[in-house]
Amino acid sequence: MRMRTARLGALTLSLMTSVSMAWAVESTDPIKLTLHDWSGQLINTKIMGNILKEAGYNVEYVQADYIAQFAGLKNGDLHLAMEIWETTGREALDEATGTGKVVNVGETGLMAIEEWWYPSYMKDRCPGLPNWEALKDCAEEFSTAETAPYGRYVGGPVTWGGFDEERVEALELDFEVVHAGTDAALFAELESAYQREDPIMLWVYVPHWAPAKYDGEFVEFPPYSAECYADPSVGVNPDLAYDCGKPRGPIWKAAWSGLKEKWPGAYDVIEAYNISNEEMSAMVGKVDLEGVDIDTVVADWMKTNKDRWSGWITQ
Rank of each mutant, 00 (worst) to 15 (best):
W203T: 15
G249H: 09
F142C: 03
D77L: 05
I275V: 14
V219Y: 01
L186F: 01
N58F: 05
E165F: 12
W117N: 07
H79E: 09
P130N: 08
I313F: 10
G40F: 07
S192Y: 07
F142E: 04
R125H: 11
S20Y: 11
D183V: 03
E176M: 11
M82N: 15
W301R: 03
N274Q: 10
E217F: 06
S18T: 10
H179S: 14
R152T: 08
D77M: 06
V292N: 01
G249I: 05
S310V: 04
Y229S: 03
V298E: 07
E140I: 12
A299V: 00
R2D: 12
Y118R: 10
N305H: 15
T159I: 12
E95K: 09
R4W: 10
L8E: 15
E115D: 14
E271F: 10
S18M: 13
A139T: 01
A81H: 12
K101S: 07
Q63Y: 08
E166V: 04
G249P: 03
A134C: 14
V297K: 05
L35D: 03
V25M: 01
E91M: 06
R152N: 10
E54S: 14
E197K: 14
V206N: 11
W301D: 02
T296S: 10
F218T: 05
A81D: 13
W116V: 09
V298L: 02
M280R: 02
Y224L: 05
N274A: 08
P247Q: 04
C228I: 03
V178K: 14
E83A: 15
V103P: 02
I51Q: 01
E60F: 02
A184T: 10
S27H: 08
E146M: 05
A134S: 13
G40I: 06
M111Y: 14
V297E: 03
A230F: 04
G98D: 02
V284G: 08
A272L: 04
S143C: 07
F142R: 05
S276M: 07
A185Q: 10
G235W: 13
I294P: 00
A10R: 15
S281C: 01
A10V: 13
G181E: 11
E278G: 07
M201I: 15
A96T: 01
A226G: 08
M21D: 06
E271S: 13
W252F: 13
T296F: 00
G100N: 07
I251A: 09
P130G: 10
R90L: 13
A22M: 15
Y118H: 12
G109P: 04
L135I: 07
L129R: 12
A254Q: 09
E115M: 12
R167W: 03
K260G: 11
L93V: 15
Y61K: 04
E95F: 01
R308E: 13
G181S: 09
A241Q: 04
K123V: 15
L171D: 05
G311N: 11
T17Y: 06
A210F: 00
S225I: 04
S18C: 08
E86Y: 09
I294Y: 01
V102G: 05
V168D: 00
N58C: 11
E172Q: 15
V219R: 01
E133T: 13
R2V: 10
